[in-house]
Nucleic acid binder design. Structure first.
Lengths: 214, 214
DNA sequence: GTCGGAAGAGGTATTTATTCCTGTTCGACC
DNA sequence: GGTCGAACAGGAATAAATACCTCTTCCGAC
């Protein structure tokens, strides 16, 4: 299975793994920086754009990455003291609106047919754990008892939902609003609460929230 | 490493493994039979031609081949997007407030010590798939582009968030408010929208939402 | 708040892969 | 040997990806 979505995901992940944006990765590989623009992955008429094998080859060479790693294929014969890959499993993925049309489920109700892509759940990465919410200060997003999956020390961008643990022991779930070398501005998940600035030096660790239970 | 030569070799081998010629393989995949002609792999000026990722995808689908096998990467991949059990590691679970106290992470920042439980994820045999949200009618819970993990035909209780597909093709994410033998009352995730009653006979399938991406 | 570079959307031009087509070769079958 | 369909080479047309370009927005440094 080599799906459109899987390839683009792999490109985005490769960029992230190298602390690059998609345009930065393209640039690094000698390609035009707009080559992997999100806006160009699906044409206006809905047709999917498939990055060329030549472009893929170039980004792999530029980042020193094996194709197997790029595609998230485990190679048990490599056996080179690699730690177990993080917890993940591929889950078939389809657009919500698409699910209304026929042809996506077999007679037993399982995903079938063309159109299904794959999403990794709960995520790939070495330090992924779950935290259980208490209290209702994060309603309506997170109710008491909800579980959130957190990738600690993952790359975090503006707008990301994160868990932050400060040096004095406070743990909070917030949205990154702004990030500089010294300060992080954290907006509350509950708009009733004010934006809060935290010194980076005060932060013991930060993890990006990947999933929330429902 | 993904080289021109490696890809073409893989195509030829895939054809041979399926008792096909390169032109037969192309034909089988719905491509023009001349697509993989040897004569077209290197242009007259010496420039190498790289088959497109879309063409590769098509031949993999047509022959039921995994990309790892195609590229000669040993892969213990099994079934529909399932990695081998060995690579699936449980995700440790802790209370959010507890995470503020010491003793739950080791020096490298990984979960350690007592108090960690384990999150339960859907079992292998369950019919679990992901749907990608479009539009913003489900804000603030689900933004456009968010992915929700759905267990189709799972047991559903009052208060559960569900995806419902009706017989006339509508797909919607709602909260079960009341459920009788004949009727299901579905509250919207966006409180601005009214509660809706749907006859059970009108529902093609219902799936409980397990997780939402963040 | 200002500034400058990166990121990204969107449009056009150029390049490149596939498709369409024609003709030749090859191999199986009669 | 003749016939037929598949395989293959090669050229032109078409479709699709990248390159180039412009503009706007974002983001981090100061």
């Amino acid at each position: 299975m080599l799906s459109h979505g899987r390839i683009w995901e792999a490109i985005d992940r490769l960029a992230a793994d190298n602390n690059l944006s998609a345009s930065g990765l393209a640039r690094k590989a000698g390609l035009d920086p707009t080559t992997f623009n999100r806006s160009k992955r699906v044409a206006a008429d809905g047709r999917e754009r498939w990055p060329s094998t030549e472009s893929l080859s170039k980004i792999l060479v530029a980042t020193g990455t094996e194709i197997g790693d790029f595609l998230g294929i485990l190679d048990v014969h490599r056996g080179f003291g690699e730690p177990a890959a993080a917890s993940f499993r591929g889950v078939p993925l389809l657009g919500l609106a698409q699910a209304g049309a026929g042809g996506f489920f077999d007679d037993a109700g399982f995903p079938a047919g063309r159109g299904w892509e794959e999403v990794e759940f709960p995520g790939r990465g070495e330090n992924v754990f779950a935290l259980q919410v208490s209290g209702d200060s994060m309603m309506p997003l997170y109710r008491a008892g909800d579980t959130i999956i957190v990738a600690r020390d993952a790359r975090v961008n503006r707008g990301d939902r994160v868990v932050v643990k400060t040096r004095d022991g406070e743990v909070m779930a917030k949205v990154v609003q702004r990030k500089t070398l010294k300060l992080v501005e954290l907006a509350s998940l509950n708009p009733a609460h004010p934006v809060r600035s935290v010194a980076v030096a005060e932060i013991e660790w930060m993890g990006r929230i990947l999933w929330a239970s429902q």
